[in-house]
């Protein structure tokens, strides 16, 4: 079990401009670009890491937060092992929308047991001085909605970013041990599709 590398799909959801792409870039390439354009559709990066003796390849999916990109992003919710609901601590509306994001995810990802699905909540832009959402409010929301872990992050300063992803991995691994369900079944699926697609088109 320890030598096996599993592929975990983690998806970042949240309003446009809360910093989902920046969080992903900070975590994977340790870079921060203040002038990123809107993400169009979805993007992803892979990162290998070890958590509690488990070798894991984390596939982090970054999504477009704007409403007009909805139809592009939703097909990619399926197969996620963990969902990182993201808001910006300096934008109260993005916090209020967390519930909608959760609903959208559960609907399109076709989650069988929503109450057991591992969500992690991120309050980003901790570096900004003018907060609109207090840590208490956020923690309260997390508790009321299913006892989700909550992290205040800053992609700009690299605060808590790695910790949040590691926590996400722990949650998933814990889920898997409970259900005694091996992850690689997902990995196989991912490969089959493109292969068959290429053979029929070439």
């Amino acid at each position: 079990m320890t030598t096996k590398t599993s592929l975990l799909k983690v998806i970042l959801l949240g309003d446009g401009g809360v910093g989902k792409s920046s969080i992903m870039n900070r975590y994977v390439t340790n870079k921060f670009d203040a002038h990123l354009f809107h993400t169009i559709g979805v993007e992803f990066l892979n990162k290998d890491l070890e958590v509690d003796g488990h070798q894991v390849t984390l596939q982090i999916w970054d999504t477009a937060g704007q409403e007009r990109f909805r139809s592009l992003r939703t097909p990619f919710y399926r197969g996620s092992d963990c969902c990182l609901l993201t808001f910006s601590v300096d934008d109260n509306q993005s916090f209020l929308n967390l519930g909608n994001w959760k609903k959208e995810f559960i609907y399109y990802a076709d989650v069988k047991e929503p109450e057991k699905f591992p969500f992690v909540v991120l309050g980003n832009k901790l570096d900004v001085t003018e907060r609109q959402v207090s840590a208490e409010e956020a923690q309260q929301w997390c508790q009321e909605n299913g006892d989700y872990p909550y992290y205040e992050t800053s992609a700009k300063d690299a605060t808590n970013v790695a910790i949040a992803f590691e926590e996400a991995v722990r949650r998933v691994l814990a889920m898997d041990e409970r259900t005694d369900h091996l992850i690689p079944t997902d990995t196989v699926k991912l490969h089959r599709k493109p292969r068959s697609a290429t053979t029929c088109c070439s």
Binding site: S21, N25, T39, E43, F44, L45, D62, F76, P194
Partner: peptide
């Protein structure tokens, strides 16, 4: 390489589907 990788991954996923 790094500035384009994520977007290329994403675009590939979109176009493939």
């Amino acid at each position: 390489y790094h500035s384009s990788l994520a977007s290329l991954n994403g675009l590939e996923a979109h176009l493939r589907t």
